Simulated scan of single mutants.
Amino acid sequence: MAVTDEAIEKIKEMIVSGSLRPGDRLPKESELAAELGLSRNSLREAVRALSLIRILDVRQGDGTYVTSLDPQVLLEAMSFVVDFHRDDTVLEFLAVRRILEPAATAMACARISDAELDALNARLDVLGSHPSVEELVAGDLEFHRTIVRSSGNSVLCSLLDGLSGPATRARIWRGLARDDAVGRTLHEHRAILSALRDRDAEAARSWATVHIASVEQWLRSTL
């Protein structure tokens, strides 16, 4: 194991064991290096690496802290990596979204409030029947984000947020290429919303699957 990897593992063990908790400040570099049996250089490299993936927060002139370790914070690194996807992997990202988002939509059935449903309905009304592709995609992102947040699962919410980049580009592409894309998307949004209002988890799951699969199927045939 490389020296830096060993240093990363030792800091990870401190966090997992509870020796360092979310929000805790790390001991001074010299003290921590001596405690862990590491050189200061290897410790410094480990801290730099862990700060890049949002495990640690280096505050200039103040010290180094363990972050909140909230899933949304930790999964931001995944979102960064996703943005570097190749065209030949976009279908794989969409397939993952097709697996996860219908489950989140079904979970939201029991938790989403009537006020949130009314707000979603109002946003659809504001879009009207002939929004631009850009307006539709922006509305689509917020529509799904609101529903996924209502699932009550922060990890699922963060994962789907991280996957939104390739999915967004695919939706814009379809919206520009297919004449029926706008009307179809609006119809499917209304169907999902109706299932949520009826508290019908299986119908919500089915409509979310249809909605996401339609983009995936179109892209598969195009590529």
Results as ranks from 00 to 15, higher is better:
S39G: 13
S39E: 09
S39Q: 09
S42E: 12
A46C: 01
V47M: 12
R48P: 01
R48K: 14
R48V: 06
A49G: 03
A49I: 08
A49T: 13
A49R: 13
S51E: 12
L52D: 10
L52G: 05
L52Q: 10
I53M: 11
R54C: 09
R54S: 13
R54W: 11
R54V: 04
R54F: 14
D57N: 13
D57M: 00
D57S: 08
V58G: 01
V58H: 03
V58W: 07
V58R: 14
R59Q: 12
R59V: 11
Q60N: 07
D62I: 15
T64E: 02
T64D: 06
Y65T: 02
V66N: 01
T67V: 00
T67C: 09
D70E: 13
P71D: 05
L75E: 01
A77H: 04
A77W: 02
M78C: 10
S79F: 01
F80H: 06
V82Q: 13
V82I: 15
V82G: 08
D87Y: 09
D88F: 15
D88E: 15
D88W: 15
D88S: 15
L91M: 05
E92M: 05
F93I: 02
L94V: 07
A95Y: 07
V96F: 05
V96A: 05
V96C: 02
R98N: 13
L100F: 08
L100N: 03
L100S: 11
L100E: 10
L100H: 03
E101W: 02
P102R: 02
T105L: 00
A106R: 02
A106N: 00
A106E: 02
M107L: 15
M107S: 08
M107F: 12
A108Y: 00
A108R: 01
C109R: 02
C109M: 05
C109P: 06
A110S: 14
I112W: 01
I112F: 05
S113A: 08
S113H: 08
D114V: 00
E116H: 07
E116D: 11
E116L: 01
L117I: 14
L117E: 05
A122N: 07
L124W: 03
D125I: 08
V126K: 06
L127V: 03
L127G: 04
G128P: 06
G128W: 07
H130R: 13
P131N: 04
P131I: 05
E135Y: 03
E135D: 14
E135P: 04
V137S: 10
A138R: 14
G139L: 02
G139K: 05
L141S: 12
L141C: 07
F143R: 07
R145F: 09
R145H: 15
T146M: 14
T146C: 14
S150H: 11
S150R: 12
S151V: 13
G152R: 14
G152K: 13
N153D: 14
N153E: 10
S154K: 15
S154V: 15
S154T: 15
S154A: 15
V155K: 14
V155D: 12
L156W: 13
